[in-house]
Design a protein around this nucleic acid. Structure first.
Ligand SMILES: [Mn+2]
Ligand SMILES: [Mn+2]
Ligand SMILES: [Zn+2]
Ligand SMILES: [Zn+2]
Lengths: 148, 148
DNA sequence: TTCATTTTTGAAACGATTTCAAATTTATAA
DNA sequence: TTATAAATTTGAAATCGTTTCAAAAATGAA
C-alpha cells in the first residue's frame, strides 16, 4: 500500500485537518502497523522519531481523526481505548488469555432486532470474548499456553 | 417478584457466597431497581441504609457476583461499568443524547460469522448507539429535547 | 514583517477502580 | 463458652488512562 507522506497529507487535507508533522506520523503509524493500537502504543512508537512528542498531542490527534472519520474507536478492553483504521463494518474478538484483538466478518444488519423500532441507530458494535487458537493450543507438556 | 431476604440469601448460598448484610442489600438493590446501575449508583442508594458502607465493599461485592454469574457487566459507557441482572442474551443500546441504556432482543447466534472458526467464544456482546425515541421527539419549539 | 489562529507541550487535575493493611465480623474447634 | 482462624468490611492511598489548562511554538493571512 501507498502510505507515503503525500498520500497521508492528501488524506488529512481532504478532511480539512492541517497536516502537521505529528499528525502525519500518527496517521502513518496506524496505517502501517494496522491492528488495534492504544494511544500509548502510538506514543511509545513515535517518541523516538519525535523526541518532543507529548502524549496529549497523541490524544488530541486521535480525537481529531475519530471525529473526522479517519479512525474508529474499539472499546472492548477494560482500561485503554484502541484505534482501528479498518472502517468497514466488522466485529472484534478479544482473547481473554493473551489479550489480542482479532477482526472477524459479521453482517449485523442481517440479524433480526426487536425493541429498537423507534430508535435511530448510528453505530453498531459486536464484541466477542474467549480464547484464540494460539491460546487454545496445548503445549508439549499438555498444559495451555501461558497467559501474558 | 419475590426478592425477599430469604430468596436472596438462598440465591447467594447456592453460589457459595456468604450472605452478609452488605451483599444481600446490593443483590436486593440490583434486582429491585433493575436497569443498568453503576457501582456508584448502588453505593449512593445503599449509603442511607448502611451508613458504614464502603465503596470498596460495593466493588468487592460486584466482582464476587459477576464471577459467580449472578450479574453481568455492561461496558458500553466510557467511564463507569454498569451491572445487569438480566442474564438472558440481549443487546444494549445507549442513547448518545440522554445516556440511557436500553435492552433489545437480538439473536446473535443466527448471524453468519466468518473468521472465528478455530476460536472458542465464551461471551458475545452487541452494543448499539444512537438516539432514543425520547431524544428524537421534537419539542414544541421545534428543537430536539435537551441532552442531559 | 506583523498579527491572529492553530497546534503542541508539560504539569496538574480528574475519576473510576484497585491495592493495602488494619479493624471487624463470622465460622470452627477445643 | 472461649480461643483461634478465616472471611469480610473499611478508609486511605495508589494507580492509571484520560482530560483540562495555560503557556510556548508553529503556521497562515494580511
Ligand atoms: Mn478492527
Ligand atoms: Mn441489559
Ligand atoms: Zn490468545
Ligand atoms: Zn435519549
Amino acid at each position: 500500500m501507498d502510505y507515503s507522506i503525500e498520500f497521508l497529507t492528501r488524506r488529512l487535507k481532504s478532511k480539512a485537518i492541517r497536516p502537521s508533522y505529528q499528525r502525519i506520523k500518527v496517521l502513518e503509524y496506524v496505517h502501517q502497523k494496522g491492528g488495534h493500537p492504544t494511544a500509548d502504543d502510538i506514543f511509545r512508537a513515535l517518541s523516538g522519531d519525535i523526541p518532543s512528542l507529548s502524549k496529549v498531542t497523541v490524544y488530541n490527534t486521535l480525537h481529531t481523526f475519530v471525529k473526522a472519520g479517519l479512525l474508529r474507536v474499539v472499546d472492548i478492553d477494560d482500561g485503554e481505548k484502541r484505534y482501528d483504521v479498518t472502517l468497514a463494518d466488522h466485529g472484534h474478538f478479544q482473547c481473554e488469555a493473551c489479550g489480542t484483538i482479532f477482526n472477524f466478518r459479521v453482517n449485523i444488519d442481517q440479524v433480526p432486532i426487536e425493541g429498537l423500532e423507534r430508535f435511530e441507530i448510528t453505530q453498531k458494535n459486536v464484541y466477542f470474548k474467549g480464547l484464540c487458537p494460539n491460546c487454545l493450543q496445548p503445549t508439549a507438556n499438555g498444559r495451555k499456553e501461558e497467559a501474558r
